[in-house]
Design a protein around this nucleic acid. Sequence first.
DNA 1: TGCCAATTCCAAAGCGCTTTGGATAAATTT
DNA 2: AAATTTATCCAAAGCGCTTTGGAATTGGCA
Lengths: 350, 350
Amino acid sequence: MPAVTKNIVNLKQLAQHLGLSQTTVSRALNGFPEVSERTREKVREAAEKFNYRPSPSASSLATGKARIIGHVVPVSEHRMINPHFSDFLAGASDAYAKAGYDLLIRAATPEQEVEIYRDFVSRNRVDGVVVHAPMVEESRIELLQSIGLPFVVHGRAGGEEHSYSWLDVDNRSAIEKLTNYLIDLGHRRIALVNGLESMNFAHRRRLGYESALIQHGIDPDPDLITSQDMNEPYGYETTMEKLELEQPPTAFVYSSILSAMGGMRAANMHGLRPGKDISLATFDDQLSFLQSKSSSRPPPYMTNVSSSIQDAGRRVGEMLIEQIANPDAAPVCELWKTNLVVGESTGRLG
Amino acid sequence: MPAVTKNIVNLKQLAQHLGLSQTTVSRALNGFPEVSERTREKVREAAEKFNYRPSPSASSLATGKARIIGHVVPVSEHRMINPHFSDFLAGASDAYAKAGYDLLIRAATPEQEVEIYRDFVSRNRVDGVVVHAPMVEESRIELLQSIGLPFVVHGRAGGEEHSYSWLDVDNRSAIEKLTNYLIDLGHRRIALVNGLESMNFAHRRRLGYESALIQHGIDPDPDLITSQDMNEPYGYETTMEKLELEQPPTAFVYSSILSAMGGMRAANMHGLRPGKDISLATFDDQLSFLQSKSSSRPPPYMTNVSSSIQDAGRRVGEMLIEQIANPDAAPVCELWKTNLVVGESTGRLG
DNA sequence: TGCCAATTCCAAAGCGCTTTGGATAAATTT
DNA sequence: AAATTTATCCAAAGCGCTTTGGAATTGGCA
């Protein structure tokens, strides 16, 4: 049985109708210079009229370009499809749509990931990929470089930082600022509720935290540091636990607004008023579901350093598309700074 | 310039190497019966050895199947890429991956949506689509039926319910249960913090709410009902506002855990203890970032009716794949029930 | 008017796969 | 042993597009 084509009209038919060759029609539509404006206009009109659309698989086969960007996301225990991811996607997909690209997601276990990249590239299913959540020990970057699949990293790995494109938040200085601020308020026992420190961003955040403490002559207390998937219950449980220590911390730094919300809940549970009896501060990705759309926006209720992960997604998408268009350009690296925003959840130790 | 193929080996080369025709090799790999087991095994080995992978665009062109499922998501003011969506995707992409399908997302304004479906189908970029967030006045279903693109609706539209496949939660009875429970606790002034009622699910939830009230001889008070995008600040602001009414509600029903969290924050702000001074209950999609992974899971702190949106995504994905494999089968419709779980956030009016 | 270059167009050859319609060799039956 | 199946395999024709390498037409200039 021949393939069933659902489309109304293909290039051949359109060309036939116009009394032109397929070549000319194709060139007219793709903006090549060797076709006169008059015929180009005619072709455009006919294409419009017959609702002609080129077949992606056919043009992909002919050009070797898929006009698709791939995202491979782990489906392991440490799920990556979470609110951070969806906000990132919202930004990225917007950039893709503007450039005429589609976004493709494939779920995979970490072991499958290498295989998938090979699969992507060997038959050009996608023109490029976004590397999410780089680890401290990261192997994907080398792999992608060696197989020649364009990519942009959201975050950074260690090592050769200028051999590939990435966009990262200055995690270290962000958390350092937050910690310094708490120290300035008189706090000495400050807990860090961090993300998984096998991840590069969390590792850097810890360095920032420790650096602030050490600068002020405070010894980091391992009992006050935890490292896990960033979700609400983690923030709740950890905060509850730490508050029951013999010498409980007087301030908490959270690596994510999600766990910070859990921390809030724990503080309420203990009858502690944030900003008075206890101080809570967090890194904030400006997740959209927490953003007020009304103009009469309430003041930020939590002290934070923030950076829009949605904007990051958009920019990463743009960078990747530029790179695909211009493969020989030098890598682009962007390090985004954050600002400290003082809210109502922190106060002087007293 | 001819297309640059990055793959190591194509079908022709593989066949040449094996001393077989492309036909035989293709059939061997695709499990056709007219090839002997011995040669099939040989072909498999060689394919493995040379790391052969069929080109998706080529096979898509030849078969008319893309092995891709499309999701078109609005990028309007009322963004659809939110935590609910990402959890749904997590489930769906898992189902797709298991069946060898990829997931494609295209961001679009509502006006573009029709155009995109036509685009999808006319050149089979995708084999089917998931319809998200059906409205009360829904036009996509008829469109998709008329152009013959397989689809499954997450939710339902009104009208002909058995002419297409869908999976929905019994929104009406869910909210009815919740409201009834609050009434049984003695509450009479119960606020509904609903989603956008132009959406079908929110419309149904409102019906459930009103039905419970009316059954108990309570007149729904329009002042106690709001309808907006479900996010945290909405829950906060609405709850704050309602609490300042002359006759404030004694209980709140939220359409989403996100706004319920905002409600919690507002209650705390007012110094009201949930479960004592005020009752809060919510519909809960079991968003993964709120789920505790530890076994020592705390009791649910909010009274709720719940249904896993991730499971829904998985099931919708499965249904769609089945439908694509078997286009002439009857539509599949699933209505998922919810259970009332009593938590600590509700109490007898006292 | 004749010649050369620029303009405008086209036929045909892929891209890598699937599938049709046989052909050939092996096994079975008469 | 000849005739008929049956099991294997193959050449070639698409799928719908892009792109190469010319060919035909037009315009400018001497």
